[in-house]
C-alpha cells in the first residue's frame, strides 16, 4: 500500500546519509526507503551525494571486464591432470 506523503516521518540529513549505501546497493526496504526517498525529494545536498555515490559505484562496475585467457585455461587443465 502506498504511504501518503503526509504520514511520512521527516528524517535528518545525518539519518539520510547513514542510509545512502544501503540505498544505492538496493538493500533498503519499506519505511526506511520511503523516508529516504522523501528526504531526497526535498534535500538537494543529500540528493547530490546519492548521485555522486552512484556515479562512483558505476565507475567501479565498469572495471569489470571480460577475460578470456587461453594461458590460464591451459594452466588449469595441466593442474587438473596432475591430481
Amino acid at each position: 500500500m502506498k504511504q501518503s506523503k503526509r504520514s511520512i516521518q521527516p528524517i535528518s540529513c545525518e539519518e539520510a546519509l547513514s542510509r545512502v549505501f544501503d540505498f544505492i546497493d538496493d538493500h533498503l526496504r519499506g519505511k526506511a526507503r520511503i523516508e529516504l526517498e522523501h528526504h531526497l525529494e526535498t534535500c538537494r545536498h543529500c540528493f547530490d551525494r546519492v548521485e555522486f555515490e552512484r556515479l562512483l559505484k558505476s565507475r567501479l562496475r565498469k572495471l569489470n571486464v571480460n577475460v578470456h585467457s587461453q594461458k590460464v585455461r591451459k594452466r588449469v587443465e595441466t593442474l587438473l591432470d596432475q591430481f
Partner: peptide, 15 residues
C-alpha cells in the same frame, strides 16, 4: 566431475 564444473568458471576466477 571437477573439470566439468571448474572449467566454465575459470574466466570468472581469473577476472
Amino acid at each position: 566431475e571437477l573439470r566439468q564444473v571448474l572449467m566454465p568458471l575459470v574466466d570468472d576466477l581469473h577476472r
